[in-house]
Structure formats: C-alpha cells, structure tokens
Simulated assay, not measured.
Amino acid sequence: MSKLFRDVEGRSPCPQGSVVCIGAFDGLHPGHRALVGHVLARARARGLAAVALSFEPLPREFFGGKQAPPRLLLPRAKFEGLRALGMDAVGLLRFNAAMAAMGAEEFVQRVLVQRLSAREVWVGPDFRFGHGRRGDLALLEQMGEALGFQAGAIAPVQSGGERVSSTVLRQRLADGDLEGVARVLGRRYAISGKVVRGKQLGRKLGYPTANLRLAGKRPALSGIYATWVHGIGPEPRASVSSLGTRPTVQGVEPLLEAHVFDFDGDLYGRRIEVEFVAKLRDEEKFDDLPALVRQMDLDAAQARRVLRHDMEKRGALA
C-alpha cells in the first residue's frame, strides 16, 4: 500500500533511504511511466523505497489561475495511478505561497534529504524547480555530491516521431482527436471520480446522469461524447456523456454528466470511470428545453451506434 504525504515537514515515509522521481505527472503518459519505471527498478535493485514526488495544485495552476493549462488527471487519480505503477510513497506537496518562495537549495535540503532520505533523484527532460525556477539537473548533481545522493535525467520518450508531453495530449484532446490520444497513452482517455448529486434536471428530461465534479480543475476537453462507464458492474456500460458548463441551463462549474443506457440504479457516492470513445459534437446553447431534449435524443442514438461498432471491433480483435 503506497503512503501518501502532503507536507514538507513530518515523519519520513522512507527512513532507510529512497530513490525519488519528481514531476507534474499530469496524464501519466509514457514519458512519466518511463521515469517511474526507471526509479522503481533502481529502488528495487538497491533495496530502497521508490518515491514519486509531485505538487497539488501544480505550480502552473498556482501561478496561472484561470489561465493555467487544463488538467489531464485529477489529484486522486494521479495518486492512484502512481500507486498502481508500484510507488512505495507518493508526495503531493501542497503548492502554496510558502512553497513558491522556497529556494531550490532549501527544497533539496528539506524535502529530498531530510524528508525523503534520498539516495538517488531522477527527473525528466528540462526539469526546473525552486523559487524562480532556478533549480535544475546541474544543481541537483552538484548538491548530490555534497549531500550523498546521485541525480540524473531520463531521455524524452517519442511517439510517431514526436516527443510525448502533456502539452501535446492537451492539444489533441482539445481538437477531439481521441484516437491520437489513445495511441500515445496506450489506452483511451478517461476521467474517474465519485458520483455526486446534481440538480436532477436530466432525470426530469428523461436522461438521468451520473455526475462527476472536477475538483475545481479546468478539463482538457469539452463537448458531447460516446463513452463507456466502468465501475457499475463487471462489464463497462454504454453511455453518452456531456462535459462542460451546460449553457442552456446556465451552468457555471464544469461538470461531467454520464447518462448510462438502460440503467436506473442509484450511483450516488460510487466511484466510476468514464472512458471517452468518440466526440459527437461541441457544447451549444439551445433556445429552450424541448430543443435540448431533441438534440439529446439524437446524441443518444449516435452514441449507441458508435459504441455498438466499437464493441464489434473489439470482439473482432479478441
């Protein structure tokens, strides 16, 4: 069971020493997985704890506010993903004013050496850290020589001749290129979370939905999608989902709403995962609710066709 820690101070989760990787890990794409896999192998070879170190909110969110890049992965999903990859401890350090003001050298001393007893520290390409982004691999190597740890960086991961990055994935999601995202990730893009109560307008319109809030994060995609919902039973359930601000009913907060076909159970409080198969259309504002329902009927029919074809294709490949 992976240990989760949020603070700079506190009891070390790995007093016998650790191999640490540092990054945003937004999306846990192949580049991130290569870094994590390298650290896990090094830790197992040395009999040390494997630690993934990140921040919440991400520094770009803290400094950028509403202009920050959209998120690919919500905090809990990031922790669960790193845990599933085998990390013994995961740090999602609170990025606040104090953290933003912390110099790179202080970060090395307080977090890597004192908190984590680091013996090795590994980062991705172009990694920067500390106040003013003044810390880099060269500083890690220099301080490591004096403080007893080794530092290094792994090479970028390529896909189709292009460097894999969260920026590339965000752009493809914004463009509706779900197949391109799946090729890079090795799996379809999905969002997971706990089902919360909404205004229950969908039920009144004949389309009850399982609603997932996005923890105040800006999603990397929006619109209407054919989706599979995981977590209801042993098999994924066909669904049509809306991700956005619901302009027809004056919504404000981005919300993921999944209508599961041929299902009438209670999902409140259950954790589900919504897997995005194909984009059907962009969000739009309708003149009235009857016009919205007519479009929802069309969306549902199209989603069923897409998912039926997807199931047939998967069956042919099995």
Rank of each mutant, 00 (worst) to 15 (best):
A210I: 04
A210P: 08
A210T: 10
N211Q: 12
R213I: 07
L214D: 05
A215S: 15
A215D: 13
A215H: 11
K217S: 15
K217G: 01
K217C: 13
R218E: 12
R218N: 11
A220E: 07
A220M: 13
S222V: 10
S222H: 13
S222Y: 04
G223Y: 07
G223F: 01
G223V: 08
I224S: 02
I224G: 01
Y225E: 06
Y225R: 08
Y225V: 02
A226G: 03
A226S: 08
T227P: 04
T227F: 03
W228M: 04
W228L: 13
V229C: 00
V229H: 00
H230W: 04
G231H: 03
I232W: 01
I232R: 00
G233P: 08
G233R: 06
G233K: 04
E235Y: 09
E235D: 15
R237M: 14
A238P: 09
A238S: 10
S239G: 07
S241D: 03
S241P: 06
S242R: 04
S242Y: 12
S242N: 15
L243H: 08
G244Y: 03
G244R: 12
T245I: 15
R246Y: 01
P247H: 14
T248E: 07
V249N: 14
Q250M: 12
Q250K: 15
G251A: 14
V252H: 11
V252R: 14
